Amino acid sequence: MKVIQFLIGFALLALASSLASATDPGHLQDVCVAINDPKDGVFVNGKFCKDPKLARAKYFFFSGLGKPGNTANRLGVNETDANVEQIPGLNTLGISPFRIDYAPYGQRPPHIHPRASEIFLVLEGTLYVGFVTSDQLNNTLIAKVLNKGYVFVFPQGLIHFQFNIGKTNAAAYSALNIQFPGEFTPANTVFGTHPSINPDFLGKAFLLDPKIVKDLQNKFINGN
């Protein structure tokens, strides 16, 4: 009986330890407003913190998500960020929102947020969205057409995309579970590096003629 009790207790302790290691540590203060000047600051989670006694509403406020962004570009899309750079009070809170506007047939090409999952809410228009699983699940495409009011979730670290399939403008709000999620687009990352990756290597990796690789590198590096 004692052996069974010991094993149960050990299992519960292991579970508690596992859960504790999977979450961020608890906050030791109410707020940690991010500042760039280290004077009189404390370095926490990539930013220095302002003295909590000096916290003001302006550090927790941002008005930039209320209006459409300029979509007059190659992709027909505009992303308005509201991460810790725009809202210093987000520091250590583990959240960040942003707005995406799409011209007709505008798109956010396949990209990755390496540090966050994303929940996506359509404000207007019709969007085709999806993500691709890793090779663990055979690179499966999981996609859906979303209308106004629909919500979709993109898991952390997986390639995902959005495409306005309608003839009118579209817009969406998105929220991520970290103050600065980061983002990289594989095509930009591979073909737009400084200095360039060897075209022969990339040609073999992507089954492309090295001349095509050089052309892609020229386009991405010069922002065409």
Rank of each mutant, 00 (worst) to 15 (best):
M1Q: 07
K2R: 11
V3E: 15
F6R: 14
I8E: 12
G9S: 06
F10T: 15
F10A: 15
A11F: 14
A14G: 11
A14H: 01
A16W: 12
S17E: 11
S18H: 13
S18P: 01
S21R: 12
S21N: 11
A22L: 05
A22T: 03
L28A: 11
L28P: 05
D30Q: 14
V31A: 08
A34P: 03
A34L: 04
K39H: 13
D40F: 10
G41R: 00
G41F: 00
F43E: 13
K47E: 12
K47W: 15
K47Y: 15
C49D: 00
D51C: 07
P52N: 04
K53H: 06
K53Y: 05
A55T: 15
R56F: 08
Y59C: 02
F61C: 07
G66Y: 09
K67N: 12
K67R: 10
G69F: 01
N70G: 07
A72D: 13
R74W: 01
V77S: 08
V77T: 07
E79Q: 10
T80L: 06
D81P: 08
V84H: 03
I87K: 03
P88C: 02
G89Q: 04
G89P: 00
N91K: 10
T92W: 00
T92D: 03
L93G: 04
G94Q: 05
G94H: 05
I95Y: 06
R99F: 02
I100Y: 04
I100P: 01
I100M: 09
Y102H: 13
A103R: 05
A103P: 06
H111W: 07
P114S: 00
S117P: 05
E118L: 03
T126L: 09
L127Q: 07
Y128S: 09
V129D: 01
G130Y: 01
F131C: 04
F131N: 05
T133N: 04
T133W: 02
T133G: 01
Q136D: 09
L137A: 10
I142W: 00
K144N: 08
G149P: 10
G149Q: 09
Y150T: 11
V151A: 11
V151E: 04
F152W: 12
V153W: 00
Q156A: 00
L158C: 05
F163A: 10
F163Y: 14
A172T: 07
Y173R: 03
L176Y: 00
Q179D: 11
F180V: 11
F180S: 14
G182V: 01
E183G: 11
P186N: 07
T189I: 03
T189Q: 14
G192W: 12
H194M: 08
I197K: 07
D200H: 09
D200Q: 14
D200I: 12
G203W: 05
G203F: 07
G203Q: 02
K204G: 00
K204H: 10
L208Q: 06
D209Q: 10
K211P: 04
I212K: 13
I212D: 11
D215R: 11
Q217W: 08
I221L: 14
I221W: 11
